[in-house]
Design a protein around this nucleic acid. Sequence first.
DNA 1: GAGGCCGCCATACGCACGTATAGGCGCCGG
DNA 2: CCGGCGCCTATACGTGCGTATGGCGGCCTC
Lengths: 221, 221
Amino acid sequence: MIRQGGKVSGGDEPADKRVVVVVDDDAGIRASLGSLFRSVDLHVELFGSPADLLARPAPDVPSCIVLDVRLPGISGLDFQQQLAAAGVHLPVIFMTGHGDIPMSVRAMKAGAVDFLAKPFRDQDMLDAVMSAIERDALRRRELAAETDLKARYAALTAREREVMSYVTAGLMNKQIAGEIGLSEITVKIHRGSAMRKMNAKSLAELVRMAQALGVTDPRSS
Amino acid sequence: MIRQGGKVSGGDEPADKRVVVVVDDDAGIRASLGSLFRSVDLHVELFGSPADLLARPAPDVPSCIVLDVRLPGISGLDFQQQLAAAGVHLPVIFMTGHGDIPMSVRAMKAGAVDFLAKPFRDQDMLDAVMSAIERDALRRRELAAETDLKARYAALTAREREVMSYVTAGLMNKQIAGEIGLSEITVKIHRGSAMRKMNAKSLAELVRMAQALGVTDPRSS
DNA sequence: GAGGCCGCCATACGCACGTATAGGCGCCGG
DNA sequence: CCGGCGCCTATACGTGCGTATGGCGGCCTC
């Protein structure tokens, strides 16, 4: 069984697929986009309003969102920000029938993958969706690695984290002992524990982990 | 050919200022943008055509380019790509009187800072320019640091680079000696030379430099 | 051809690192 | 209440690291 992250139990979610989430209040548009995406082997979830989307959990596979700019009750651009604020970082593709340039620029600045004016060619939409899903797949790979790292870091005690920050800043055990006000031997112990818990096989690895975690030199703060 | 970063001799260039480069075939627009930017203490260079811009060296201070999409002889979007291909990475702001959404989306995807439809408010243009110059200033700071680093790395001998890559991968001197087929003492010497030439005060520093330089574990290639 | 740079190796010393062994203190939850 | 954990310290040993000293050969350039 494939376990990506922490899947709970048997939903009807695809295990090894890619999902396109469509939000549009026009049922005809939803239907035609649905068949378009299914024709290229993508799983589709259709919603008539933003609220419906929020009521369901975000898919746990590489996916993206296709949004009409004009949504019932809220602007698509505002909804984009709302999703980001809620921790949903799926790539967004906009489509619109009555858009203008400032609107498209604002959407792109906010990180939209594409902004398609209706009528658009099916191929343009497919290209945008494929690009967005690829981007999301990459983000998920990076996120998985980082989550793992953060879990290990969280298992460190306060002292171990403190010592680790000095170690990865390049200080010797003796210097660290002086900075914190401990004996050198104690520093060595925390250092060894940190290395073991972080699963670092060398100082070089620990430094790269600290880099990825954003751990900085304590003396510069 | 434009050479960005190698200042030739005494132009009338400002030493501590910020520059806005304007390219528009309409002399009236040029004039009004010129006075707009000067009013907020920005230095301005005005050009009637892309060719005129290419004939002059790019400014060596934080700056940006304001382009009309419709230029004499070439599309502003194509010109944007042309500049990037020529190694000029100044942030670009587009303005247009007859633009459409696909055009603006293409420009933003290509990295434009903003895309303003005429008529625009002066304040919107100023905001865009300030943001672009800030972005360029940041890029220059990063570039300067990286250039420095690359210069030091280039001063290493082949052996020193080789040893450095193994060291920053986390191998011990003994292991490196085995991998390359040298004695441990020789590895130590190259390692020490690399540390000195790279101006690294600790292994942690060297690892971060290798990271920034894209130096990877030789065993994984 | 002589000097300079690079590369290679050896012995040796001082220091740093990692860990094992052993002990003491305070806190918390079973 | 006591065991476990975090935290601190000490002595001691083995190993790794950095460098100094000294020596050898190849290549290029002046």
